[in-house]
Structure formats: C-alpha cells, structure tokens
Design a protein around this nucleic acid. Structure first.
Lengths: 220, 220, 220, 220
DNA sequence: GATGAATGAGTTTTCATTCAT
DNA sequence: TATGAATGAAAACTCATTCAT
C-alpha cells in the first residue's frame, strides 16, 4: 500500500494500466465498441471505473489505444514469421506454406479476428484510426513480404511484374476464404480446412508466379 | 388513392415499410448497429417511431431484415452480372475483367460496403444472421461463378483442379485489395486503382489457370 | 353484415359491447388498471381497438363502467341471498351461517376479489368512483342486512342497540379474516377454513347479540 | 463532515437512500405502482434518476422494499401499543378502547392506508411480496394481540375458546368499518366516528367474550 | 359502426462521465 | 492515484388515442 504495488490481490505485478488494456481488449472484442461498457472493462480489470478514466481519458481514446496496440502486436508477430522465409528458393512451396500458416495463425488468432471485426465496425466513424491501424498493421507486413518476394524474384525463384502486387495477392490467395471458413472468426476452423486453404493458395500463387516445375502436376 | 398510392395530401403514403427499410440501411450503415437510433431511422424515413415498431417489432429484427434483404439484393445483382460471362472463351481476359468490374461495383458499392461492415461488426453477436447472410449472399454468387468457370474449363479455356477453389480465388484476387484501397469502403477509389486491381487480379488468375498465351507478355 | 349481428364467428349473439365489458373485467382484474392495455382488452373481446373507443370513449370511462356494473351485479346477488333469511328465528344460528356463506361466496368469488382489489388500487385517484361503487355495492347490502337484523330484533331473536352497527359487525366478523385466508383473493381457500370462518364469526355475533342460550356451550 | 453528515454546501448529503425511500412511499401511495414514475420519485427525493437505480436496482425492487419496510414499521408501532395493555383486567373496556385507538391510528394513519391500498393493488401480481408483508406486518400484530388476550383469559377477565380467533375478531370488530368511514383512507374520518367505531367494536367484543357485567347496560 | 395503420407523449433503464474524498 | 456515489443525456420500447377508409 505504501509503494507502487498493492498487487491486486493475487495476480502478478502487471500494473493497473496494462490490466485495463488487457481487459479492454477482451471486452471490446467480445461485445463491440458501443456495447462494451466501461463498467465491464473496469470490472474485468479489477479496478474502479474512475481509474479507467484517470488512465485513458475517455472511452474512445481507450479504444484507439487498444486498436493501435493490437495492430502493432499482430504485425510484429507476422513480420517475425516472415523473417524466417529463406531467400534461396530451397523447397519454395513448402517454405511459402509454412510462412502462410504462421501469417494466418497470427493475423487470425482469437484476438486478431476480434480486432479485425472492430476495425470494420468502426472504420466509418473513426477514419483516422483506420489509417493508423493500417499504417502499423497490414502495411508493414505487406512491405516486408514485398521485400522477401522481391528477393526471391531477384534470384530467379519467382517471376512477376510488381512485387507489391504479388505480395497483396499472396495474402489474398492464402487468407481469402478464411472469413468464410471461420465465420469471421466466430467459429473454429478445422485443421484440414486451414491446410487446404494454405495449400491451394500457395499452389495458385506458384502457378502464377513460380519459375520451377510445380511439385504436384496439374492433372493426374 | 388514384395512382400509385400517394394520398391524403401532406402525409405521403407511398410505402412506409420500404421507406423505413431504406432509412434503416442508411442509418445502420452510417452509424453502426448500436449507435443507430430508432429515432434517427424514423426521422429519416419520415414516420413516427412507433410505426417502426409496428412494422418490424424491434431493433434487432429490423436489423436482421435489413441485412438479409441487402444480401439478397446484392447477390442477385452480381449473379445477373455473372450470367453475361460467355462460355466460348472469346477474349477471355477482357470478359473476365468486365465481369470482375461488375462484381466489384455491385458488391462494393456504397450500400455493399456498409452491409459488409455491419456483418463483421455483429457476426459474433448474431451468428445465425451471419449464416443467413452468407447463404443468401456470397454463397450463391460463388456457386454461379463456380459453374461458369467449370464451363470454361470444360471447353478448354481454363485449367484447374477444382472449380470451387478457382472461383474463390478469382474473387480473392480481384477484390483482395479493395478493402485497403477504399479504406473498407469509407473512401472513394480512384477509377485507375480499381482498373489496376481488376487487371492485376485477372492477370494473376489467368497466369495460374489460363490455357492460352497471355495477351501481355510477362516482362518487356 | 347487413343488420345487427355478424355474430363474431361462432360465439352466441352477445353483441360487441358486452363482449368488451366482459373482456375488460377479465383484463382489468388480472392486470390492474394501469397495466391493462386496451390492446389486450380488444384482443380478448375479439374486436379491433377503435371499437373499444367507439363504445366507451376512453380507458377511464370503460373502467368506471366495469366497476359500477360489477358492484351492482355483486350486490344484487348478495341481496338475493339475504332475502332468504327467515324472520322467525327458527334455527337462527344455522340460518345466519347459511346466509354468511352465500354472502361470502358472492362477494368474494373470483370476480368479486378482483373488483375489490381494483377499488382499493384506484380509490385515491378516482374518489367519485369509489362513492358510486359503495352506493351501488356495499351500501345496499348493508341496508338490507340491517333491515333483516332489525326484524329479528323486533321479534326478540336478537338484542342490540343499533341494527346498522350490528349489520356492519356481522359482515366484519364473518368475512374479517378472509383477506388473510385467501391472500386477498389470490389463493384458493380450503372449504374447512371457510366454514370455520363463518362458524366462528356467527358464533361471536350470537354471543354478543343472541337472546337464546347458545347451541354450543362456551366451555366443556 | 463534522456533525451529522451534511457537507459540500449545496448538494446535501444527509442520506440519499432514505430520502429516496421516503419519496417512494409518498409517490407510490399517491399514484399507485404503475402510475408512479421513477422521475417523480427522484424529483421528490431531490436526487437524479440514476441514483434511484444505483440504490435500488429497479422499480419493482424499490417497491418491494418500500412495502416491507412499511409493514415492519407499522407493525412495530402497533406492537408497542399492544405492549401497554395491562394484564390485570382493571378497567378492561377502557383499556381495550385505548389500545384499539392506537392500533387504528397506527395501521390506518396516512401512510398505513396507502400501503394497504398498494398491497391490495399488487397482491395478485406479486404474491410473494404479499406473503412477506403479512409475515412482517399483520401476523406479528395478531400474534402479540393473541398473547395479550390469552393472558387476560387466563386471569378470568375474558372467556373464549380460541385466543387467535378472538384476536382476529377484535381487529375485525374494531377496524371493520373504517374502510367505509375513510373511503379506504382517502378521506379524513371525524373524531366522533372514530370513537364510535372503537366503542361499538369493543362493546361487541366484550358482549361476546367479557366476563364482567358491562359498564353500559344493554337497553335503557 | 368497425378497422388497420399511424402517432405524440411518456416510461424504464443504461451509460459515459464527473465530484468529493 | 484510486474510488464510491452521483448525474445528464439518451435509448429502446409502450400505450392511449386518433385518422382515413
């Protein structure tokens, strides 16, 4: 009680600010911006309501911080996954599939979907927030992916006109039918469906832009 | 009373029910489900609040009907566009681009985006609604597209393993970076960007699955 | 459709006015004045809402008529029961019990309790209605009872100073703990409890005002 | 902050909770449950509407607490009055009249009548509340009265079979025509009428169960 | 006279936000 | 800084009542 940490009875030391942020992510993604109550967030965080206001000013600001933090966290994880994509074209198909898996897992984990739904929900009302989230979330990911693909193209393992377009298309092909499969993240996706999505996406990508004979022949 | 139903001078009798629906689409998509007030919807529709309740029971039901109707309207328009895709493979690239344009225009017109954002926003809270919207919206579109692509494949104009996968990928490639371009529908897309999206999407699709030499050569 | 009776499909001929009154009694007593909706009354009566207004003007007036009619009906029945009380003092105790039973049954039948609760509920808001109900309901009953008791006293079968007081006390003694027994009419009363109430009430009345030795001696 | 709790100059801090309860009694009894608005209660209490909800949850709960508190308060006062009834039978008639007066005053003071009307009005809708009110209100009163009367009987000052019945009948005789006299509490009762009611009630009670020669002779 | 549809006024309840400590 | 209590503003929903036919 004297110093900094009354420790909220039991949990670690994560101070109140991050407890609130954590709670806010949970409640916002579970209920949506408008339906989420500061009451509920404070309760989940184990603090009093005014404490939320002391730390974050108002609901919208708390929301913005939640969204920006989330975008950053997610994109950092994805970028880390992309970093492991080798340049040398060895087992390109397998490597792309591996990377695609990790991208999908990150972007579309439980929190990821929640944030995505929130972004859609509030994009019209908070256009600047949308920009910030893109700038910290998908844009860096695309940039890095673009770089990796360009590298592979430079070494002759891929062949396309514009690496930025290719990067976008890679993401589109690989995650394009995940919304449908997971009902926008509200239902678990069967492992097999996930694998198939990745496989068919990478397959199409390599058909379009690969320079080597495909591992699996087209017909029979 | 004489002609189409306007009467009693001031009040206007056209069709309150559809006036309300129209207003609801506008307000819901502009504000989001929770922020949209029945007050506002009634005002936009030019009716009294209880009239909304007389016709639709409650807010959630009104929302469901808005979403289902919207999904149906949109998918019907897209299907009509797909119907015009010829089977004979004549100028396949041009035809695919033409169709892609119409698909994009329909699906992502002003109302389309709004409904899509609403769907994302409320999918977690109303999972059955999500199912209905998919069943009346994207699923029929994919089915029809699948059929057309299969026809083209049968005649040798395309070559893929699974027409359903190809259909999904066609949509993904062609509309995959529209969310980014239009900021989830909150900003107008430059004609040129739209064209480029369609062109690069169709290009990639044909590189992957086309059977004829591509019109535009890969490099220079 | 031409003449007077479209007969409301099936039921007898009781025309709409009394159908509405009947329904109103049911709904008012079941729900209370404020909670009772004209909608519900109209539905129970099988008519359209404006029909209720055509017949009765407004809710309060309908309520007044329901209450007055009910008071009159009830008091008429009770008075009929009292008329059968013989003057000659033969088996006075038995006769008083018989009459008490009939009084209680009438006054506190299902509808009776409902109207009583309504009267209590709205007495403060509609004092004139209270007066009318008393004038048509309990007052005539007391008057008649007073007359019968005075007759018995004249013939030496009872002995009191003021027959009006005695009449009031007879009712009080006989029905005084019915509210408790029936939870103000919301719960069925066991036959035995009813009998006991009547017996002990008449017994006390005769102890106070009887002129003959009591049938059942005081002690053992 | 120094003394009883008033502070911060303007707002008044005395005790919002009891201010609300007091206001609720007033408004509920004046208007009835359904017609009473939380608005009005808050206004009378001098607090904001949500404060009412913070303290009591919802309207029905507030109502229940009002009723239970009222029943308890009233019965406590009556029981205190009964406690002063001496056991020794000295001036029994006068003592019974004195007690009867105090019972009537308590039970049927302004608030008492209001609560009684509310109880009648809502008994059908809230049967458990009825039970609680009886359990805290009339039942304890009857129990205590029963004990006092039994004591008097044991000492030979009264003579009846069942003290519980006698207690009920005492109340019935003494307050039986108060509803009529006061128009269910909506009109002031003349002192003389009150006295007469008590006198005739006690007189009848002693005629039925007294063991001494009555003070006032029966006839002339 | 009877009705389907419409409405103005009002209700309970919730919520983001702020005092006072 | 943290909080218990209070509040202004608004939202969903209901209802008695009335048009227009």
């Amino acid at each position: 009680m004297t110093e900094s940490g009354r420790s909220t009875a039991g949990r670690g030391r994560i101070d109140k600010r991050s407890a609130i942020l954590e709670a806010a992510v949970k409640v916002f993604t579970r209920e949506g911006y408008a339906q989420a109550g500061i009451d509920a967030i404070a309760a989940v965080a184990g603090v009093a309501k005014p404490t939320v206001y002391n730390h974050f000013g108002d609901k919208e600001n708390l929301f913005r911080i939640v969204m920006r933090d989330g975008a950053e966290r997610t994109s950092n994880r994805i970028i880390a996954a992309l970093a492991s994509l080798p340049d040398d074209g060895q087992d390109l198909e397998g490597e792309l599939e591996r990377v695609a898996h990790r991208v999908i897992e990150c972007q579309l984990g439980d929190e990821g979907w929640g944030l995505q739904r929130l972004l859609y929900a509030e994009a019209a009302r908070l256009p600047d927030l949308y920009d910030q989230v893109v700038a910290r979330g998908s844009q860096p990911v695309l940039d890095v992916l673009c770089g990796r693909l360009a590298g592979l193209a430079n070494r002759g393992h891929l062949d396309f006109d514009d690496p930025a377009v290719a990067a976008t298309q890679f993401i589109a092909l690989v995650s394009g039918n995940l919304p449908g499969l997971s009902a926008l993240g509200t239902r678990p996706v069967a492992r097999a469906d996930l694998d198939a999505a990745v496989r068919t996406g990478v397959d199409a990508f390599l058909r379009a832009y690969g320079t080597q004979r495909r591992r699996r022949p087209r017909r029979g």
